[in-house]
Design a protein around this nucleic acid. Sequence first.
DNA 1: ATTTTGAATTTTGCATGCAAAATTTTGTAT
DNA 2: ATACAAAATTTTGCATGCAAAATTCAAAAT
Lengths: 236, 236
Amino acid sequence: MALPDAIDGEAMSAHGVAEAARPIRRRPLHDEVTERLRDMIVEGQLAPGTRVNEAALCGQLGVSRTPLREALKILAAEGLVDLLPRRGARVAGLSAAELGELFEVLSGLERTAAELAAARASEADLARLTALQARIEQHHAARNRHDYAHDNHALHEAIVALSGNAVLKEVHARLMTRVRRARYMALLSQERWDESVAEHAGILAALAARDARRAGELMHRHVARTGEVVRAALAG
Amino acid sequence: MALPDAIDGEAMSAHGVAEAARPIRRRPLHDEVTERLRDMIVEGQLAPGTRVNEAALCGQLGVSRTPLREALKILAAEGLVDLLPRRGARVAGLSAAELGELFEVLSGLERTAAELAAARASEADLARLTALQARIEQHHAARNRHDYAHDNHALHEAIVALSGNAVLKEVHARLMTRVRRARYMALLSQERWDESVAEHAGILAALAARDARRAGELMHRHVARTGEVVRAALAG
DNA sequence: ATTTTGAATTTTGCATGCAAAATTTTGTAT
DNA sequence: ATACAAAATTTTGCATGCAAAATTCAAAAT
């Protein structure tokens, strides 16, 4: 097999001076590989169930087996890959049942996030959420599913971030990575879409009122319903 | 996560014939190393902040660097180790602040677990929980902190298991691993200890009544308070 | 005495080699 | 043909080698 030679990496820029100021440290290869592989799995480029051949992937990515194997261990820890001892790795499947479980946990996490955010977010934070929700409503009115999906995701992430709890944020992000593999999520019925936008409004109102319990409860129900819809779509 | 590991397990029996029937496959080394290292960290044998020297640990464990490095990647994904690029690994610290965050998340997860368990546990399951609680009360009456701690942990795990949600169980277990590093948990005041036992009774009653909301709420409060106590102990 | 510079040493990151296990292929007997 | 057995091939798991980066240590300069 061809030897992946030299580190190379950055293209030579002509800015002699700026060159010196640029960050010196390169990212470890195994990190890069992990990220790349994770993207390939989430994007569906590596389909669930695919057997991962180390040599083949090494060739494709231009790295040796060592960093690739390290990456596979990490992705296995994240639940994106199954490691079969002595018989290689396969891309983890994503059943409707597991998706349902993921959403059950996510609804619990986001409830907690909403409760904490209600207590901890600043007025400025809340104003930003409201602005985001306004944009979401515009996308909804314009039937722009793509931008809607983007900002919708951003709103949920923002609320999780406003919990001020890094562990919560981390766990949430990891589970979301697994969920995001079901590309069915965008396929909401018009009815459910309308409902969803209205639920957001209710959650924001509760946050604005600093009503932690209500915000949490509404968020919980909102995410649980989303999960129901997604699970049904995957099952059908 | 969940590395499906070898079947092995049984100790060698002296029965020559049975010998041949023994599972042939050894557990992967990197698995063994991961587990061993995780134990060392949780037990406190590797103190928080300790710099991990690969060569030294390799010598101690009697393995080469390859499986050790794979194990370190996994433990980093679990949050037990920090990987500093190009300057090695260190055992992750555990601040009072982070412990607080962990308990915030755990209280949310166990609330969800209690809610689901209230709906899904069989009567036999509930009977088993009640039996466990009876033993816990005996340990409490006998001022036997060691056995109390053990069965207390078992009760919480049992309720999480009764949620019937494998993802929840997995996430909970991982966070508990991080929390368990604070050995201060056993050091409850008598007052808090009494309280805690009473709270358990309340939770079980709610489960028996199939009152999901109440079970969840009581569990949430119970774990949150435990967290408060532990955090305070670590801070002080 | 303290800082600085630069070599010597250690340590990390990655590629590669090799044996054992698993898989595939080929050949043989029913 | 089908089923089975054995050899050939592939693939995995682990150890090791080597270059680059980081750290340590020592001598020189302020």
